[in-house]
Write a protein that binds this DNA or RNA. Sequence first.
RNA 1: GCUGGCGUAGCUCAGUCGGUAGAGCAUCUGAUUUGUAAUCAGAGGGUCGGGGGUUCGAAUCCCUUCGCCAGCUCCA
Length: 663
Amino acid sequence: MADNIHVKLPDGSDKEVPKGTTALEVAKLISPRLADAALVAKISSNGDHAGGSAPTLIDLARPLEKDTQLRILTEKDPEALQVYRHSSAHLLAAAVLELFPETKLGHGPATESGFFYDFYRETPFTPEDLEKIEKKMQELVQQNIPYAREFLPRDQGLAEFKKEGDFMKCHFIEQFTRPDEKISIYRTGKFIDFCRGPHIPSTGKIKAFKLLNIAGAYWLGDEKNPQLQRIYGTSFFSKKDLEEYLKQVEETKKRDHRVLGKQLDLFSIQELAGPGLIFWHPKGGIIRKEMEDWMREQYLKRGYSLVYTPHVMRRQLWQTSGHEGYYSQNMFDAMELDDAEYRLKPMNCPGHILIYRDGLKSYRDLPVRLGELGTVYRYERSGVMHGLLRVRGFTQDDAHIFCTPEQIEGEIAACLEFAFDTLKDFGFDKFQTELSTWNPQDRKNFVGSEEQWNHAQQSLEKVLKEKKIEYKTIPGEAAFYGPKIDIKLVDAIGRLWQLSTVQFDFNLPQRFGLEYVAEDGSRKQPVMVHRALYGSIERFFGVLIEHYAGAFPVWLSPVQVVMIPISERHAEYARKVADQLRAIGVRVEVDARNEKMNAKIREHALQKVPFLLVVGDKEAEAGKVNVRTRGKEKTEDMPAAEFVEKIGKLIAEKRATLCADPK
RNA sequence: GCUGGCGUAGCUCAGUCGGUAGAGCAUCUGAUUUGUAAUCAGAGGGUCGGGGGUUCGAAUCCCUUCGCCAGCUCCA
């Protein structure tokens, strides 16, 4: 029959139904249980043409007009959760309008872990309001109100929203639709939203949700615009999932490097000294020393030279480098000295350039690789500081490579190798790589010629391909002076952190008139590469703390071993073993305090010390130690010499685990 | 910088209506000499973030300033 259409289901079967049948009705034909569980449908045109059209999600209530492949999505489909959360956002908006009808609506999408809705209202919402809103949402769920879709002529829709004073909705309609179009509206009780959907059938389907917090957000993300109140929430298919999520949030909080930094006495930030400035305490200091030693050793191994440059330099230098123009809003103010004005350095590059420029370079000298653990100061706006991750003073493992155009690909390849080796040694093994390129249309924000950009981007790309590194290209995200490769690492709980970066620069060599004498005796401009692998030692440390939740591998642990003598008479033996450990460079303490062994174990366990060695009569007589390994329930006895050998090996190999054998 | 919240002992936090600042842990002293996550007792410790105001009286109410937290914007 001409009025019938064919609906192909995921199991390969085919149903012939009248045109205009809804996805929900098809679900009912399959099974009432499926219809009950159904949340949203996914369609794509039949495979007459290769592949068919891209799949789209649609409301269950939408009539099917032509032959299609159909999949009914339920709680088992992750895509359905996105829709469910978007519908949760509408539920939130509906509740807010019931309680505070004067509120104007922005937009309310699903996010990675929940949803939000933006509101404009004179008086701010309070935490108590949040509770009321949540209760109202609960009521609306009880009422099981459908998410009803309608189409309105654009003018009529605009008029309706304008009447309500919903200036933001009007903006969206004008922005996203054409005058001749009908606009899509969803109605949930009194609440009407301009929205493409799709949505779940009705509010009754929402089983578990929670409003989390209120925060400010600029209208259209522009800080010149008025600020809206953004209410964040999350929702899940079951109470159990929601509780699990909330528990996970708590776990993440426990890993917070600011909390652990205090508990483990690693670092502090002092109000008297100023925000965004880090004080490294002895225990953090040891870890920093390990990081610095590691990096300096690698610099030398890989053909870098170590340099040191001043922290304040004349303003004129920053004018030459262009930082006075491009970067001054991020620099500390100038300070007047008797001869000139000086500024704290926000970057190390100009310093390294001056070293390069101090003396004529031959092509035989290249590449010149100048590395420094360079401390820089940047003025960050007061609201953006965050523990170790965003600070005003930090130390970069910064190096600049000056080379010939022919050498560039080899240098880039070596940098990437160096970067991955670094991250791996610190216990990270998953990465995402990004190539940031320019936007040829946006000449204002990118210096250099088209030829320079193309050449630079091609060489970066070539290296990535040759090294078989998977990467994403991000157009328009390059630095103004050249394209770059960023490496993001994935931490123990799956979060991404951007630290390592390798950047091309064709701006500074030109500004400083850098040159080298080529084979034919002519003067040529070297190519310059900026690269930082930790990025900032502070930030890298912060990420390390969270990655390990404070339980560092032995080689990084501030205290690697604590000797616990059972009573006073065992202290001497404990000291003897400690001396043996110290002799091979182990950081060991003897806890001979007049405390119970249990209390000592508890304390050092909380400090996440990798090994606690209990020694009493038994051990002292046999020359043994009783080893309590962090994270292991059972203790083990072994000769002191064996433990010394074992820990020596763990440290030398920078082993990420506490076991001597890999498996 | 913006919106909202918060700031009490070294730390974590309680403090009702505006009416004499509290607990646990930590610290110090003493006792105890200990077998795998907190021994007992006693003591000391406070510009209630800073400044100003209202009041007979302010940790509490108001103003202001600094700092912290969440988010936005911006970034290594």
